[in-house]
Design a protein around this nucleic acid. Structure first.
Length: 453
RNA sequence: GGCUGGAUGGCAGAAUGGUUAUGCAGCGGAUUGCAAAUCCGUUAAAAUCGGUUCAAUUCCGAUUCCAGCCUCCA
């Protein structure tokens, strides 16, 4: 298995620290607003890795933190007059709901920062004791210069960073690139600490939580591309001075989801929420949409693309329904090809193209009257689809109870009687009436199929 | 200003130092009460300029353009 390592800027062979065990840490959300489809992609990508690696026989421990204390959360709670605990819990619940609707499982553990405040304070103290940090007016700052390799991950030199940051930085900092470990609260709300009533800095929480759950060193650290600098760079500096050097084997970053070629983000006000998009497109459509672009690349989100993907899935499922999959014996030719593709830095795009080759072979066998062969290939199609997270359940493609299923059946029967009587006027009327409910009718020689559009 | 990616047919999007993926759309045909779907066949590509090489879309360099990061971000 080869995975691209942001630190080395190269694909690297995955060598677990401990035999066949893998420890994965992914930076989660700051919980002050609903998940958009960009977050959805991120969750999908790391869940996909998790699921695939598990399939390959690794025993995994997958942790994703929840930042439930932050300036933004406080600001929002003041604005909406909702206490922070209610607000964060409400958002956490909504994220879990969205995740489930996307067909993803939550990580093994999702620690909340607020549950670990004492340990965070303990480690900030440790940094202070070792002279890696200093106190100024109730704030604690990390001394960036104590970490010799600072900037390695994002490939920045201190000199260049300095140049750009020359205008804006806190007047309390001794050196302008130093960053906060503890911030004194400007609000009434905050946690008690030896330095002030305040909050931990953003970066220290990930250093501490990963240490608690995964130990001094772990295999994979993931997150969105936008976290490389400063978040991961700073986290790396702290963890390496506190725990282990290096503390992470592979740094993995997922690409963004764009709208009109601009990053989808709350600050740009161009978000499309998971909870809305999932009403119209089921999770397999959205998963398929994610799979057709490599995880490190950005995707430009359009409804047209979702529609294309929806039609593709319908097309595959239509075939599966026609052929009726039956397991004969495993044919590992296509399976091996898909594994080969995925072992190369999760090349899902290639894997999908292999799936289409298989579909083509299946159709061809069916057409040539090799029914047994086509059924076996069809079974293979479903088996491989499952690895990718699609074609999981044929049921899902039946109408989402917008319309009574039995009623659809009886209307189709009625229509077929009209057709036999060559009363096309009536039969077309019925077809049109079903289109209103997004139900598409397809006549074949054998029988009439219908799909939920 | 620095850093990181990227530019592939009409669109989406991989791999690859020689054979040019895959999907959608298009085009031609078959099938059909009409649709839709399906089936068979098929066109079409490498931002620009150099270099290396027998051979470059692929490697190297320069230029142009796009996106991201350097404030909060997944």
């Amino acid at each position: 298995m080869y995975i691209y390592n942001t630190l080395k800027k190269n694909k690297e062979l995955l060598v677990p620290i401990n035999l066949n065990k893998l420890k994965i840490y992914v930076c989660g959300s700051t919980v002050y607003d609903y998940c958009h489809i960009g977050h959805g992609r991120n969750m999908f990508i790391f869940y996909f890795f998790y699921k695939y690696l598990k399939h390959r026989g690794y025993i995994l421990k997958y942790i994703r933190n929840i930042t439930d204390i932050d300036k933004k959360i406080i600001k929002k709670s003041i604005k909406t007059n909702e206490n922070t605990k209610n607000l964060t819990q409400r958002i956490i619940n909504s994220i879990h709901k969205d995740e489930k609707k996307l067909g993803l499982l939550a990580p093994d553990c999702e620690p909340k920062v607020s549950d670990y405040k004492n340990i965070i304070i303990y480690y900030i103290n440790k940094l202070l004791k070792n002279d890696f940090a200093y106190i100024k007016k109730g704030n604690v700052f990390f001394k960036i210069k104590t970490h010799k390799l600072y900037g390695m991950l994002s490939n920045q030199t201190i000199k260049n960073l300095n140049f750009f940051l020359s205008k804006k930085f806190s007047r309390y900092k001794k050196y302008k690139l130093d960053f906060s470990l503890w911030k004194k609260s400007q609000y009434k709300f905050g946690w008690a600490s030896p330095w002030s009533v305040g909050f931990p800095g953003w970066h220290i929480e990930c250093s501490v939580l990963s240490k608690i759950y995964l130990g001094n060193k772990f295999d994979i650290h993931g997150g969105g591309l936008d976290l490389i600098f400063p978040h991961h760079e700073n986290e790396k500096a702290q963890s390496e001075l506190l725990f282990c050097k290096p503390h992470v084997n592979l740094w993995v970053h997922s690409g963004h989801l764009n709208v009109n070629n601009k990053k989808m983000s709350k600050s740009l006000h161009n978000t499309i929420l998971v909870r809305y998009i999932i009403i119209k497109y089921n999770n397999e459509v959205i998963n398929f949409f994610f799979l057709i672009t490599h995880y490190r690349k950005s995707i430009n989100f359009t409804i047209d693309q979702l529609d294309i993907v929806l039609n593709l899935l319908n097309h595959i499922l239509y075939k599966i329904i026609c052929i009726t999959p039956k397991r004969q014996k495993y044919n590992n030719v296509f399976y091996n090809q898909i594994i080969l593709a995925l072992e190369n830095d999760f090349n899902t795009v290639k894997a999908i193209s292999i799936l289409f080759n298989l579909l083509y072979k299946t159709k061809k066998a069916f057409k040539l009257g090799k029914i047994k062969k086509s059924q076996s290939l069809c079974f293979e199609l479903i088996r491989l689809g499952k690895i990718l997270g699609i074609l999981k359940s044929l049921k899902k493609f039946k109408p989402q109870i917008l319309f009574n299923i039995n009623k659809v059946g009886s209307l189709i029967l009625k229509r077929n009687i009209y057709k036999k009587e060559t009363n096309f006027l009536q039969s077309d009327k019925l077809r049109i009436s079903l289109t209103v409910f997004d139900i598409l009718i397809q006549d074949t020689i054998k029988r009439t199929f219908w799909l939920n559009r």
